[in-house]
Design a protein around this nucleic acid. Structure first.
Lengths: 102, 102
DNA sequence: CGGTATACATCATATCACGAGGTATTATAA
DNA sequence: TTATAATACCTCGTGATATGATGTATACCG
């Protein structure tokens, strides 16, 4: 999939991945990859960004000798998803425009 | 609309705007703006990019003392639109994922 | 012992939207 | 007449960000 088209959905995808249940980097990649291919470097960049933007909060747990950073969605993160759903309607209008011109 | 979400559709929107009829910068802005807000600087950047990518070819005409650069879509440009339509299907899947998680 | 899975992270690079600024002509309103 | 808007083009710097390459460390399986 085109990298440019990804940009608008990547953040929201990651937020959606933790919406129902707190999750951690390695698991998020496994979960999201079948839907939208993303690399580790991309994911960890996004996690940092969403944390800085206070759309997620982090808590850490040790699991079988390995560190796990769990991400929990905030109100702001949920709002981001809802905003996206509205933006999607705009995107549908744009898609219609493109198709009509064809 | 979120700048990131725009990135995937802007190019294709501009291509769609000239698909049926050759057009020029100033008119393209007028045509596309109601559907998807874009600034002049963005448009002219895109036109240059699409020309470099051989998705458009240019021809010039003088109109009432003012220069007009008309853009004509190429086979490659048309293919870009068709590719986008396929990518849109992927995007729908991603949207479904986001909604299901909600 | 070596490879794979788990788990994290950084850095350099390339792409690109956009505001701010620039040039020039014609039409319209005060 | 004199602004002001409309028409028509363009460039540059900045900020945002996806990604490959690279690095660290532990557990488990053959």
């Amino acid at each position: 999939m085109d990298a440019q088209l990804k940009r608008g959905v990547l953040d929201v995808c990651v937020l959606a991945a933790i919406r129902n249940e707190d999750s951690y980097g390695y698991k998020i990649i496994k979960d999201v990859k079948p839907v939208l291919d993303l690399s580790e470097s991309t994911l960890y960049t996004i996690l940092k960004r969403l944390e800085d933007a206070k759309m997620m909060v982090v808590w850490t747990r040790e699991h079988e000798g390995r560190l796990r950073k769990y991400y929990h969605i905030t109100e702001k993160g949920i709002r981001r998803i809802e905003d996206f759903k509205n933006e999607w309607k705009e995107l549908m209008t744009i898609y219609q425009y493109i198709v009509i011109q064809s």
